[in-house]
Structures are given as structure tokens and as C-alpha cells.
Computed example of a mutant assay.
Amino acid sequence: MRHAERFVDVLERASDILAAVGLCTMMLIISADALGRLFGAPLQGAYEFTAYYLMVIVAFLALPRSYATGGQVRLELLEPWLARLPGGLARRGVALLSLAAFGLLLWFSGDEALRRIADRETTFGVVQWPLYLSYVWMPAGIAILILRLALDVVRPDAPRRGAARPDAARPDAAGVAGR
């Protein structure tokens, strides 16, 4: 089991690094395009490359690591009561429901990606970007997230490297954080 956890952790870190590189690249391209427009020479295809590739990479490749570290927005309204259930039942249930939902999303996004790759679809315009390559990133990010969710079903309370402590950002008894 530890090998599987390490493998998923490595995949999450790699996808997170790719998402960070995509975000920095997006910043540089948009800045260069804006500067080029100021001097009458915008970057051709900057919008398409940013919208069709980099935004998808940033959104879906950051998703698995965000879930693993607890970095996503969470509603913790019922968590104190659900945490009392034995055997991590609540966390396993949430992971199982999420696994089913993301499994369905992976099925449809993977099917769409395979169809677009088979069609070799490109964008219209001066620079014809191979649009079919942009469909790969959504199923890739979701597949890594599904691996993490499957591990959460099996071992809901397994410690994770880089995960935030659940009580780190919670306010104290007075309701004021950090005092």
C-alpha cells in the first residue's frame, strides 16, 4: 500500500509542477502579448495557446494535489458530527461518492479526448493549433485525482506529505483566528 501511496504522491507532485509551469508560462505570454500590443506587434496565437492549453493544464493538473493537501474550498458544517462515525466512514463515503462522480467525468472526458485525437482537430486562425492535444489534460488530471480518491476509500486517515493540518486555519474558542 505504501508503494501505491508514494506512486500517487509522485504523480500529484509532477502534475502540480506542470500546473505551476503552465501558470508562469501563461503570465509571461499574456504580459508579452500586452507589451507587444502596446508597440503594435501582438503575439500571434497567444489567446488560443493560453485558453486552449495553459488554462486547462492549470485547472485540471492542479486538482489532484489540491485535494490531497486540503487546499480546495470545503464546507465543514457537518464535519464535527460526521467525524464521530467509526472507521472513517464519513470520509470513506465522501471519497466513494467523489470517486463515482469523477469516474463518470473521466469516462466522458476520456472518450471526448480520444475522439478529438482521432479527428486531429485544429483551431482556425493565423496559427492553427492542434486543438486535439488540449483535450488530454482534463482526463489526465482527473485520473490522478481518482487514484487519490481510491486510496482515500481504502485508507481514509493515511498521512500525506505536504498536507495542511486540519486544525491549522481554524479559529480558537473565541472565534478569532491567530490570537
Rank of each mutant, 00 (worst) to 15 (best):
L54H: 01
L63R: 05
L147F: 05
L23N: 02
T25P: 01
V8P: 10
I142M: 05
Q128H: 04
A14I: 13
S98I: 00
V8H: 07
R170Q: 01
T122G: 01
Y53E: 09
R165S: 15
E76P: 00
T122A: 11
R2I: 15
P159E: 13
R120L: 11
T50W: 01
R165F: 05
I29F: 00
L35P: 04
F39K: 11
L75M: 14
L145G: 00
P171N: 09
G71A: 11
R91G: 11
R37M: 10
G70C: 06
Q128G: 08
R165L: 10
W129M: 09
P139Y: 07
R37Y: 09
E112T: 12
M26D: 01
L23E: 01
M55D: 04
G87A: 07
G162L: 06
M55W: 04
A100E: 07
V176N: 07
V154Q: 07
L43G: 06
L78C: 13
L133H: 02
R116K: 10
G178P: 03
A169E: 07
P139W: 06
R37S: 08
A143D: 06
L38C: 09
A164T: 09
T25S: 15
V73L: 13
V136F: 14
L38W: 10
C24M: 15
L82A: 10
A14F: 11
F102P: 00
Y52Q: 10
Y47F: 15
V154K: 08
F7G: 09
L97A: 13
V10K: 00
V10N: 10
F7Q: 09
A150W: 08
L151P: 11
M1L: 13
Y135L: 04
R160P: 02
A51Y: 06
P42W: 02
F60V: 03
A118Y: 04
A32Y: 11
I17K: 02
D16M: 14
Y132H: 15
V176H: 08
D167E: 02
F39R: 12
A168N: 01
A4D: 11
A14W: 04
A59R: 05
A163T: 06
A140W: 06
F49W: 04
